[in-house]
Design a protein around this nucleic acid. Structure first.
Length: 411
DNA sequence: TGTCCACTGGAACGTACGGCTT
DNA sequence: AAGCCGTACGTTCCAGTGGACA
């Protein structure tokens, strides 16, 4: 017991005090008591939803703003307190926050809402219409207000259209006891134009745009959280402002700023330092970028990985410009070697577009006149990292030393 | 000025699967 | 057991297109 190989490491955790006082406070999901620089937004939403306490159905609300501008947290902040106050006077308000990145079909939206009001439904098997009927019946079984917050609504709309939105905006005419209000959040400013006009007008009875934070405002936000999150004096001079400045470069994203600060402190702790230094923040910045890419790549389906590998292989070749045609040629060869059934060019093209959405590759549609119209593709993440991550895959391993040169030479 | 390449990207459809209702 | 339903992944078909070249 005295000479366990982990003793040295574990002892360090026991003996030296943690940098963190409360780790949770530094997560973007935490809702603090104060939200600096969002007073107006909080008041606005509070006024809009407050009418619920007076038995009126609140207007439907549209919230715009880029990522990390506080849309989600302000919504949570306001609805949480609204629920508390409603409970204290015996009113029944249910709030459902739906993240449309995960809940991206009509069926899933309704299934989630059903779960919430105590009408569990299977995750597949029922007609969507049936789920809606059940939801409506259960909801109307007593007097209550349901506030549905659609976070990143554009993702739901993109995949499944506005069917469910239409139904939900109309539902109040059918309900006798219960009422439904909608809060829609999106970071796509032009999104509203793509909605069905009927849905659009009833969804945006009220509207609010969240402006990005500037560097100073981000500092305030970080300072506020740091008070609770860290022991006193562990953040050295300039750490907070560096986090703020780095995040402000990326359109004033508060989530990013918080992540930077938290990860920087984690790195400091791992390095057995008692204080967080600016160098830790820089390391954190690199680390976060790396993690994001890794997460995106590792979970890709095999076919997508193979298409990406084709891009990688071509990037390594002497070719100056990579087009979809070349990628497909290489892809077919990769399929031969790995023994996988190839997908069609059409499908490969879709996968390439998905990779572009993820920010893994750059794509640009170009016309080469006589020589047709195609898409120029390039890797937008480090090739070395792409290789390291993809080569963990069973199939990619088989083609890890594939050389595009011979193939291109033949043509 | 018109042609025509090498695709792009929308739409409809097919298949496999888990899981429901009757 | 039969008949649906939603989801994921893929195919087939094909009209549309930007711009270098004859």
């Amino acid at each position: 017991m005295s000479d366990h190989p982990l003793d040295a490491i574990f002892d360090r955790f026991i003996s030296s005090p943690s940098i963190f006082k409360n780790h949770e406070v530094l997560r973007p999901s935490h809702i603090p008591d104060k939200l600096p620089h969002r007073d107006y937004e909080i008041q606005f939403l509070g006024k809009a939803l407050g009418s619920a306490l007076r038995n009126n159905r609140p207007s439907n609300i549209f919230l715009y703003g880029k990522t990390g501008t506080g849309k989600t947290i302000v919504s949570k902040y306001v609805t949480k307190y609204l629920q508390e106050r409603a409970n204290s006077i015996g009113k029944n308000i249910i709030v459902s926050l739906l993240n449309c990145v995960e809940i991206d079909t009509d069926y899933r939206v309704l299934a989630r809402l059903c779960d919430l009001i105590g009408e569990p439904v299977p995750f597949t098997g029922l007609p969507t219409d049936e789920v809606f009927q059940r939801f409506k019946a259960k909801l109307d079984s007593k007097k209550q207000l349901l506030i549905v917050v659609f976070d990143e609504l554009d993702k739901l709309h993109q995949k499944s259209g506005d069917n469910v939105l239409y139904q939900l905006t109309r539902i109040n005419t059918d309900l006798k006891k219960a009422q439904v209000s909608l809060v829609c959040i999106t970071n796509d400013l032009s999104f509203k134009e793509t909605l069905d006009p009927r849905v659009r007008s009833s969804l945006s009875e009220e509207e609010l745009v969240f402006k990005p934070y500037n560097s100073l405002q981000l500092e305030d936000i970080l300072a506020e959280r740091a008070k609770e999150g860290f022991h006193e004096g562990v953040l050295t001079e300039g750490v907070i402002s560096l986090c703020a400045a780095l995040a402000a470069q990326e359109h004033g994203d508060a989530r990013r700023a918080l992540d930077l600060l938290r990860v920087a402190a984690e790195i400091a702790e791992r390095e057995n330092e008692s204080k967080v230094l600016q160098s830790h923040v820089r390391k954190a910045s690199k680390q976060i970028e790396k993690d994001t890419i890794q997460e995106a790549l590792i979970s890709l389906p095999v076919q997508t990985k193979l298409v990406l590998w084709a891009v990688y292989v071509l990037e390594k070749s002497t070719l100056k410009v990579i087009t979809t045609g070349d990628i497909y040629k290489v892809y077919l060869e990769l399929c031969k070697t790995t023994g996988l059934d190839p997908i069609t060019p059409r499908r490969a093209n879709s996968l390439l577009n998905e990779l572009s959405m993820l920010g893994v590759v750059n794509t640009k549609v170009v016309s080469m006149g006589r020589y047709g119209r195609t898409t120029k593709v390039s890797l937008s993440v480090s090739p070395r990292q792409t290789r390291n991550i993809l080569c963990e895959d069973f199939y990619i391993k088989k083609v890890s030393d594939f050389n595009a040169q011979t193939l291109l030479g033949k043509d």
